[in-house]
Amino acid sequence: MDKTMNTPVAPLPDDYYAKRKSRKAWREMPYPEKVRCVVEMQKRVAPIYAARGKIIVPWQISP
């Protein structure tokens, strides 16, 4: 039998679980909140796109 089969697996670092937990939290966010995040991303990437000659106008959403 392959000895490695019985070798205990080293626990994953806490960061791995923290990241997984935070991704879950993002997924479970209400949809309107997620839309606000998308608009925030649009605002942040707009100058980068503009530098490449593409204009992005962030969506108008209710506050």
Binding site: R23, W26, R27, M29, Y31, K34, V35, C37, V38, M41, Q42, V45, I56
Partner: peptide, 14 residues
């Protein structure tokens, strides 16, 4: 992307 965002983490879209 906005359909996917309903279920997943928010993703950038125009």
């Amino acid at each position: 992307a906005m359909g996917a965002t309903f279920y997943l983490e928010p993703v950038m879209t125009i």
